[in-house]
Design a protein around this nucleic acid. Structure first.
Lengths: 235, 235
DNA sequence: CTCACTTTGTGCATCGGTTCACAAAAGGAC
DNA sequence: GTCCTTTTGTGAACCGATGCACAAAGTGAG
């Protein structure tokens, strides 16, 4: 089963594909646990909640890892996707901000799943510094740069209040980190080359509300035609 | 300042635009607090972290609310976006699953921001049922349908373990809810017409890891050419 | 070997979204 | 009023992603 670097592999996997690979990986892991040896694009697509043509095109960007008439070898595909995502190595993650959310993240099992290890918890509040959470000692934010350096942290999760986020981000970037997962509801500004992903609960809710309103409007026959300012509006 | 339903407004705002409106809204609220009366597309775009052409096109889907040579009236635009997103009404949200994450969400201030109200907390564990969190009594999951009905819940946040998520989703949908925000790492299957948004910490990390690896590869001059199975791989 | 069947990998048309670049509109100076 | 400056709103080119539909590649039966 020798494979060469096919024409499809010369670097450059579409962003949309990258975002779906973890989904495939999760579905495949479930299948491996249930003892399946091979899987068709159709079955895997259903498990991952996408259509099979898209799945095949996605996988084709990694290489030609399927067998026509048979499907994909589950273990082999798990390995290839893991390698492509960089999960065959160990990533040290630091969580900054140990409020409710930070605590939840630290304890979140799936976090540590494959390849990731929470290596540090940091906070500015002397009240929580020193606490033991998920087997880790909460350290003071002053230690940020030292901790990043000493433990080889390459991904930082920001779970601070909104006002502190940019400041922490600046320090983290200055310390050489180029991957940030931001839970604070602010638009971070970082230099070229630093990747930021944002998770924003409030935005997700607002998008849902938009569609929910749409559905309600459709029932009652269009919106209430209130295009203008209402007579009294609280500013 | 009379405005008619311009040609642009006949229903149908692009999904990508909807996803950015909350961002604009947040930036505008900050500006309103700082007392700004009007704002140019350029300034607002910078504050929201997008480019100004995109911002103008997005806003043009809502109607023609700017003034050439001047910009947008901050308060008026806040009102229009809020109305479009359905934030002028009050949405009752139920959180199912009061583990670390559910607790964090219940206490999350920005959650209640504008238009949203946490109306119920539910869990299956008798140990946590009855607890008081964020001013609410945690109720037993058996009460799910009754609570949804009685309190007019229209958006449900799933923060349950993965194995329970689909089951809860089914019940929630059967109870008439058509908007779900899912934090459980599973692909939910729901009938047509039900909107699901998914927040998945582990997937976000994996995407970051992919890019981080890319950056590292670029430094060291390409990947290690390990196309094949390694000699020994733990399966 | 041949034939029937399965399933991958991909060329191609299509679609939605982004960006450029500019005409049209508004305001202010005089 | 005219002219100049600012800034919006949008047509049009572009770009990436999606999905169809099918040839190519593999399996298995006879």
């Amino acid at each position: 089963m020798i494979r060469r670097l096919s024409q499809a592999r010369e670097r450059g996997i579409p962003e949309a594909t990258v975002a779906r690979l973890p989904l495939y990986l999760r579905a495949l892991n479930g299948m491996a646990e249930r003892g399946l040896a091979t899987v068709s694009s159709e079955d895997l697509a259903v498990a991952a909640g996408v259509n099979s043509a898209k799945l095949r095109k996605d996988l084709s960007h990694l290489g030609s890892y399927g067998t026509r008439g048979v499907g994909y070898d589950v273990e082999y595909l798990i390995y290839q996707i893991s390698r492509e995502l960089g999960l065959t190595q160990d990533w040290a993650v630091a969580i900054v901000g140990v409020g409710n959310l930070g605590r939840a993240l630290a304890n979140y099992g799936g976090f540590v799943s494959r390849g990731f290890r929470v290596a540090a918890l940091l906070d500015a509040d002397p009240e929580v510094v020193g606490d033991h959470i998920a087997g880790l000692n909460v350290e003071h934010i002053d230690e940020l740069e030292a901790v990043i350096r000493r433990r080889g942290v390459s991904i930082v999760v920001l779970a601070t209040p909104a006002v502190a986020a940019q400041q922490v981000a600046d320090r983290v970037v200055a310390a050489g980190v180029t991957s940030i997962l931001n839970f604070a509801p602010v638009v971070l500004s970082v230099p070229e080359g630093v990747d930021i992903r944002k998770v924003d609960l409030s935005i997700e809710l607002q998008i849902l509300a938009f569609h929910e309103q749409r559905k309600a409007d459709r029932m009652t026959g269009g919106p209430a035609m209130a295009e203008e300012w209402p007579e009294a509006v609280d500013l």
